[in-house]
C-alpha cells in the first residue's frame, strides 16, 4: 500500500476531502446559523461566516421557547432511566454471566428480534396499558418505557464486562477469607466500573435522544422533552426563528457528543469487531 502511485494517492485524498465536506457542511451551516442575527438569517444570499456574530440566539432559545423546561424534563427522564436501568441490570448481568442459563440466549434473541418489529406494534398496546395505569402524560411512565427498552441491551453489554473478570480472582478472594459481599465490593466492583459507566451513558443517551415514545405518550406541553419541544418549534415558528432553533439544537446535542468523545477510541479502533461478531 505504501508504494501507491502519486496519482492514486491524490485521488484518495480527493475522495477523503469529498467525504469531509459531505459530513461537515451541514454541521457548519447549523453552527453558523446559530450565531447569525435575525436579519442575516433570512437574507437571500447567506454566507457561511456570520457578519456580526451574536450569542443572542442562545439566550433567546432559553428564554422564549420553553427549551429550559424541556431540557430539565429530558434531564430528569434520562438520569432516571439510566440509573434505574443500571440498578436493575447489574445484579442480573452478574448472575447471568456467572451461571449458565437459558435466559442468556433468550435475552440475545430478544435484542435481535425486537429490532424487527416496527414501534407502532409496541406503542399502541403500551399506550393502552399506561393509560389504564394513569401513566401517560407522566415522566415516570416514560422512564419505565425507556428502562424496558434499554434493559436487554444493557444486560447484554454488562454481561460481556463481567465475563472479562476472571472467576479465579473471586475464588482467590474467597479463599483468603473474604465474604461474598466483600468480594463483590472490593474485587468485582472496581473492575466493572468502566463497563457500568459505558452502560449508564448508553441508557442516558438513548433516552435523551428518543422521540417516538415521547411523542405518543406525552401530550401535555409542560411535560415535553427536548426532542419534542424542538420538533414542535420547527412546525410552528421554525421558519421565522432559525437562529434560536439552531442554537437550541446544538445545545441539545452536547450530551451525546460527550458520550461519543468518550467512546471514540473504542469505536474507530475496531473495538466493535468483537461486539458485532457476537
Amino acid at each position: 500500500m505504501n508504494r501507491s502511485k502519486p496519482l492514486t494517492r491524490a485521488l484518495q485524498y480527493l475522495a477523503l476531502l469529498g467525504y469531509i465536506a459531505f459530513l461537515a457542511f451541514p454541521l457548519l451551516w447549523m453552527l453558523s446559523t446559530s450565531f447569525k442575527t435575525p436579519q442575516e438569517v433570512v437574507e437571500l444570499h447567506p454566507s457561511l461566516i456570520p457578519r456580526e456574530p451574536t450569542l443572542d440566539n442562545y439566550t433567546s432559545a432559553f428564554e422564549q421557547q420553553h427549551l429550559a423546561r424541556a431540557a430539565w424534563n429530558s434531564l430528569q427522564v434520562s438520569v432516571g432511566s439510566a440509573v434505574l436501568t443500571v440498578v436493575i441490570a447489574l445484579p442480573a448481568a452478574y448472575a447471568l454471566a456467572r451461571v449458565r442459563s437459558r435466559i442468556n440466549t433468550l435475552a440475545t434473541a430478544w435484542i435481535l428480534l425486537s429490532q424487527l418489529f416496527p414501534f407502532i406494534l409496541l406503542v399502541i398496546p403500551l399506550f393502552i396499558i399506561l393509560k389504564g395505569a394513569s401513566l401517560t402524560n407522566s415522566l415516570f411512565g416514560l422512564i419505565l418505557v425507556y428502562v424496558t427498552w434499554s434493559l436487554p441491551f444493557a444486560l447484554w453489554m454488562l454481561q460481556g464486562f463481567v465475563r472479562g473478570i476472571p472467576r479465579e480472582l473471586e475464588e482467590a478472594a474467597a479463599m483468603d477469607g473474604a465474604s461474598r459481599f466483600q468480594t463483590l465490593w472490593r474485587i468485582v466492583a472496581p473492575l466493572l466500573a468502566p463497563g457500568v459507566v459505558a452502560v449508564t451513558l448508553f441508557a442516558f443517551i438513548s433516552s435523551w435522544n428518543e422521540f417516538f415514545f415521547a411523542l405518543v405518550l406525552l401530550k401535555r406541553p409542560e411535560l415535553a422533552t427536548l426532542p419534542l419541544e424542538l420538533a414542535k418549534f420547527v412546525g410552528i415558528e421554525g421558519i421565522a426563528r432559525l437562529g434560536p432553533l439552531a442554537a437550541g439544537s446544538l445545545m441539545a446535542t452536547v450530551p451525546s457528543l460527550i458520550f461519543f468523545a468518550f467512546l471514540q477510541r473504542r469505536l474507530t479502533s475496531g473495538g466493535l469487531a468483537g461486539a458485532v461478531k457476537g
Binding site: L27, N209, G238, A246, T253
Partner: peptide, 30 residues
C-alpha cells in the same frame, strides 16, 4: 474524518432533521 464520521451518529434524529431543514431552506439554505 474519523471524528466527523461519528458526529452524525451522536446527533438525535430530531436534531439531524432540523439541521437539514436549515441546509435545504429555500431562501437561507446552504
Amino acid at each position: 474524518t474519523r471524528t466527523l464520521a461519528l458526529v452524525p451518529w451522536a446527533m438525535p434524529p430530531v436534531i439531524v432533521g432540523i439541521m437539514w431543514q436549515l441546509v435545504y431552506h429555500p431562501d437561507a439554505g446552504l
